[in-house]
Design a protein around this nucleic acid. Structure first.
Lengths: 243, 243
DNA sequence: TCGAGAATAGAACGATGTTCGAGAATGTCA
DNA sequence: TGACATTCTCGAACATCGTTCTATTCTCGA
């Protein structure tokens, strides 16, 4: 990865060679391991084997570092959605195909937030300003346009979908984050459920009734179920069915 | 508000009398004005007219302070939803009345995030562990149960709704936050649109086509439109219509 | 060979969250 | 009333972080 460096025979301290890609990759590694708070510029510099000040030559500050790391992962998810084999399938009506497009893109981003627990929250922090976030929004919007929706329906629907994705993903990440890692999935879910059951069983009767449902649930299925609710509403708007 | 205090005639420095409610109220004021980053414990102590260390007697740290402030606002929104005059209306079927319940609660929380721009993001950070967040979730879940949905549908639907609310609210808050205040609403929207139009007009053709739509949009209407998409999907699940 | 720009390095600064112990106010009991 | 414990206040001190600044090293072309 790093270009060959002829180390001087004297005992001068080694000099690191950095690049923006390397910095972002290492930052993502630390973020996945220690979370947003665990990422410090000193820790990053140490992990890179370089000095603290050097990072500022590539990046304006921690905020921009987070933005770029976030944007790179959104871009990767977008590229993965592009090369999805299900993208080539052309069955169904135009509306159904467009809805499947939205579904595929949304799922690709959700998968990325599952692999990087800090990503969803950071997406909310920085908004939709970064280049790949705009591309993501553009692609969802085009699919809604292909469904034949009103301009207003396209606009409202696109923000509804992107808001749902980031919102549910962030919610799940927060839930999974407070659970103890280094533990099996059922154990983690059990921990969280115990926290619920500790509350008043009559005031929180419904939550209590959901305990078993939560123990056997899967984040991806849950996400897809809610997404399909939105999509069915959009499809119905497109096909002009009455309520 | 503060109990009468006989100030000693000598020149001893005045001693402040605090309370948790007062601390939270002042914290919310600062948060509304300066955002989460603008809230510092020193600034809070100064605004309270007290010492820095005193805050730690009432609160374990900044995280808990944020949690409590957040929870108090969720509780206020919930109480407001309870006393909503539309709650007493009993028209329509059971399913329609339950859907209206969900709508009313979701809108109450959304209104609160509009008045406190930092709230939505903080809701995402701390997850659904705080007491009033649980109550909020419980109330949505009960309404979905009243619609006659499956346990799984109740579970998936409740997280879909709560995730949508927090997600869209956080997205809108991030958007409004990066715009310059001290400026009229149309001017702010114009600023944001200009940022979009600065991008490539062919790669981002759809976003360009949404410029006019965005200039004339209203956050509350946009939020309601997406929420109704979700609700219509839930109602259709409850009434057992086929896709 | 030399000089200008690219890139690295780390000390120093200011701000922040948190800890800690001393002290003042308040209430209690003999 | 006086002594004691508890509750509450206060700010110095500490550790850490993001950022700035400047000196230094490396690279490459003239």
């Amino acid at each position: 990865m790093t270009p060959p460096r002829h180390r001087s025979p004297s005992s001068k301290p080694a000099r690191a060679t950095l690049s923006l890609e390397q910095i972002l990759a290492t930052a993502v590694t630390i973020l996945d391991r220690d979370g947003i708070r665990g990422l410090t510029l000193r820790g990053l510099a140490q992990e890179l084997g370089g000095g603290l000040g050097s990072i500022y030559w590539y990046v304006a500050g921690k905020d921009e570092l987070l933005e770029l790391a976030c944007d790179s992962l959104v871009g990767a998810a977008l590229a993965r959605a592009e090369s999805d084999p299900t993208a080539a399938q052309g069955g169904g009506t135009d509306v159904e195909r467009a809805a499947a497009d939205v579904r595929r893109i949304a799922l690709a981003l959700f998968d990325q937030t599952q692999q990087h627990p800090w990503l969803a929250l950071q997406l909310q922090v920085q908004g939709a300003g970064s280049p790949n976030s705009l591309r993501y929004w553009e692609r969802i919007g085009r699919a809604l346009a292909a469904m034949g929706l009103t301009a207003r329906q396209q606009f409202d629907g696109s923000t509804a979908v992107s808001g749902y994705v980031a919102g549910v993903a962030a919610q799940m990440a927060a839930q999974d984050l407070q659970a103890d890692r280094e533990r099996s999935k059922p154990e983690q879910l059990g921990e969280i459920v115990e926290g619920w059951l500790a509350n008043d069983p009559v005031e929180f009767a419904w939550i209590h009734s959901m305990a078993e449902e939560f123990r056997t649930h899967d984040d991806a299925d849950q996400f897809t179920a809610g997404l399909d609710l939105l999509l069915s509403g959009l499809v119905r708007q497109a096909t002009g069915e009455s309520g």
